[in-house]
């Protein structure tokens, strides 16, 4: 029984109709799945050698060490740098001095609107291209830092603004200075509010590491490319993409799960709308009705 207010609890007639719809839906979905499997089978996509890499230890090692580990390293490096970038420019945007506020605003607006790939290619060609794998690695990290940092700056700003005004007023009343109020009163409370948003942004960063494809950076996508380009595997692009996507999905679901847990444990209902922050809305704090 579900408690949606959108429709009534079905009576006998509606329940019978719903049963028919259920059967139809199952048939349609099963039909789609069957067609997909028939397509794959008809074109030899279940061939042994196409799937062999994913059960042979050498490739599994490649996928886990060169793939997952490198991807995680990139994502973690990007997010740490992005947090620093975000704090600096998020606080900068709240500054009382125009000379600080204005450049911070421009920086955040610019990098939030520029596609990550453009930034990545710029950094790569301007700096990383002669530096081999490390160059590509850091090109991805720097590009992700700029984009995610700009988004996080908005998140931080929203988080700081979400701290009740009374807290700041009380702190000033106690005779604290501006920096003290920020460091001792506003930031610690803001961090609590934005922790889940921070983790969700990690999912975005993790997914975007795959864009390193464009600059031949190491990571899961690169391992996938090597796997389906290797002639011995019989152009197994579909199996490779499915397996790689599954790895990304598992990593992201774990992160999402952590975010939900953190939200429940530390924050409660108040949350910051990441999508709004990424898109350039100023009111990134949402309170559920």
């Amino acid at each position: 029984m579900n408690n949606s207010v959108l429709f009534d609890t079905p009576g006998p007639k509606a329940a019978a109709r719903h049963r028919i719809y259920t059967v139809l839906a199952i048939l349609v979905l099963a039909g789609i799945l069957a067609i997909a499997i028939a397509r794959l089978a008809g074109n030899d996509q279940f061939e042994g050698r196409k799937w062999e890499p994913f059960v042979s230890p050498v490739y599994i090692e490649d996928f886990l060490i060169d793939g997952v580990l490198e991807t995680l390293k990139m994502a973690v490096a990007a997010i740490i740098l992005a947090v620093i970038f975000g704090v600096v420019f998020g606080v900068g945007k709240l500054s009382e001095h125009r000379a600080l506020r204005w450049p911070s605003w421009a920086m955040v607006e610019f990098w939030r609107a520029v596609p990550v790939l453009l930034a990545m290619v710029l950094v790569f060609y301007a700096w990383g291209i002669d530096r081999g794998d490390t160059g590509a690695f850091w090109s991805v990290v720097i590009a992700l830092m700029l984009y995610n940092g700009a988004v996080l700056a908005e998140v931080f700003r929203a988080g700081i603004n979400a701290v009740p005004k009374g807290q700041v007023e009380a702190a000033y009343a106690l005779g604290m200075r501006k920096t003290q109020v920020m460091l001792q009163i506003q930031l610690p409370q803001a961090v609590k509010i934005m922790l889940p948003a921070l983790i969700s942004q990690m999912v975005v960063a993790l997914k975007d590491t795959s864009l390193g494809y464009a600059v031949a950076a190491p990571g899961l996508t690169n391992v996938a490319k090597l796997t389906y380009n290797s002639p011995a595997n019989g152009q197994n692009i579909i199996p490779t993409v499915l397996v790689t996507a599954a790895l990304y999905i598992v990593m992201n679901l774990i992160l999402t799960w952590i975010a939900t847990w953190v939200q429940k444990k530390f924050v409660g209902e108040k949350k910051i709308d990441i999508a709004a922050a990424a898109a350039g809305k100023d009111d990134a704090t949402t309170n559920p009705l």
Partner: peptide, 17 residues
């Protein structure tokens, strides 16, 4: 939870297979 690139690779290079 899938990177967009994976989906595009599937549509662009996978489906022709």
């Amino acid at each position: 939870n899938t990177p967009l690139l994976m989906i595009l690779l599937l549509f662009r290079f996978g489906l022709p297979k």
